[in-house]
């Protein structure tokens, strides 16, 4: 179980998130939704200690974050990656094995085998030799997910993995995430498309600079919660498949 207490983040004196406390259930897929600027990405960055925060403590099974970092894979938004970097697909996935290798150990046969396996799981095994800049958005996203697989982490955070990718890639990814959940992994996904919420997620966190609700879909994904996140008129438009 991931537990977050009192996360507050401000960007240049403007509040991005105020006093968010929540728990994330293990062995489930949890979605994070909210309007633009709601602080969805900030929430996972704050949980991972990747942004300057005013307050907030993350623990995983009562262990401090720094003890369990290697066991968390973080798949950031694709647009933050330098696609012209001289690196091939297989080497990109190999990076996923670095956290557990630690300093002074070089990747060997075992790690290379892991790379091949991970690429197979995302159906990208034929692309190992490509430079990453030659891939489409969806292919690239699958490569980064393969990298998370190679890390063999029990917790996977994904920031907007479905933005700007093809349907096929989206299906490959969501099927894989569900399979990983069934194998016992804890998965947290920042997402923007309300129509997929009920099919993709088990639990849902709804945000708009503060926490509006969290918990199982049936409890969290309600008209009232969506309206209070997106505003009344927007809320009406976005409600589809929402529990009343």
């Amino acid at each position: 179980m991931i537990e977050l207490k009192n996360l507050t983040v401000t960007y240049q004196d403007k509040p991005a998130l105020s006093d968010v406390s929540l728990t994330i259930r293990e062995k489930a897929i949890t979605g994070i939704i909210g309007p633009n600027g709601a602080g969805k990405s900030t929430l996972i960055k704050g949980m991972m200690d990747l942004v300057k925060k005013n307050s907030g403590v993350t623990t995983v099974d009562n262990q401090p974050l720094n003890n369990v970092r290697k066991n968390i894979a973080y798949v950031e938004q694709r647009n933050t990656i330098d696609l012209t970097f001289p690196i091939k697909v297989s080497e990109t996935v190999l990076l996923g094995t670095f956290p557990k290798l630690g300093l002074f150990h070089r990747p060997k046969e075992k790690e290379k085998q892991k790379v091949i396996e991970s690429l197979k799981q995302v159906k990208m095994e034929e692309f190992g030799n490509r430079q990453i800049g030659e891939l489409s958005g969806g292919q690239l996203q699958r490569v980064f997910i393969a990298r998370a697989l190679a890390q063999e982490a029990d917790i996977i955070f994904l920031d907007e993995p479905f933005v700007g990718i093809d349907m096929n890639s989206e299906k490959v990814i969501i099927d894989l995430l569900k399979q990983l959940r069934d194998e016992g992994k804890t998965i947290v996904v920042v997402h923007h498309d309300l129509s997929k919420v009920t099919t993709y997620f088990d639990d849902l966190i709804i945000l708009n600079q503060e926490l509006i609700s969290y918990g199982p879909i049936a409890k969290s994904f309600t008209t009232a919660n969506i309206k209070s996140a997106y505003g009344d008129s927007m809320g009406d438009l976005m409600i589809k498949g929402v529990n009343d």
């Binding site: 990747l50 970092r69 290697k70 330098d82």
Partner: peptide
Amino acid sequence: IVFYKELLVSSFDPVMSQAYG
């Protein structure tokens, strides 16, 4: 040579590097 791995990952993807500590 000794820190090639760390130099590679932190040059390519500083966010991932920070995330894993």
